[in-house]
Write a protein that binds this DNA or RNA. Structure first.
Length: 108
DNA sequence: TTGCTGACTTGGC
DNA sequence: AGCCAAGCCAGCA
């Protein structure tokens, strides 16, 4: 009955679903926003065993690189992000500093 | 039921 | 500069 009723996975699930087009988020951010900044791994687990309908391709690691174990390979994720309007500085690296998105920035 | 792995992050050497 | 180890929580076997 309270906001704490939301589970970790549910919280991450909602956040990923709210990522706008042309923006990306890091696992650490999703984890921190979900309540545990060190639970970045859990976000990945949720991504694999969570809702496949969410834009997990917009979820990247803090290194500015793509996620690991992505279905099809990082090249697929890169192609998806490029289709969203994201530009890559390297073969598999993106400008995380410019493409990173925060839920509080959604109105800023 | 318990145990282990896992789509990561950060700090220390 | 790059590499190693520890920590977190949830889902599957």
């Amino acid at each position: 009955m309270t906001e704490v009723d939301i589970n970790f996975s549910k919280r991450v699930n909602e956040l990923v679903a709210q990522i706008p087009n042309g923006r990306v988020m890091t696992y650490g951010q999703l984890a921190a926003l979900s309540g545990s900044p060190l639970a970045a791994r859990i976000v990945g687990g949720i991504a694999h065993y969570g809702s496949p309908d969410l834009p997990w391709q917009r979820v990247v690691n803090k290194s500015g690189g793509l996620a690991s174990g992505f279905p099809g390979g990082p090249s697929i994720q890169k192609a998806m992000l490029e289709a969203e309007g994201i530009t890559f500085d390297r073969q598999d690296k993106l400008d995380i500093d410019s493409l990173i998105w925060w839920p509080e920035e959604s109105g800023k």
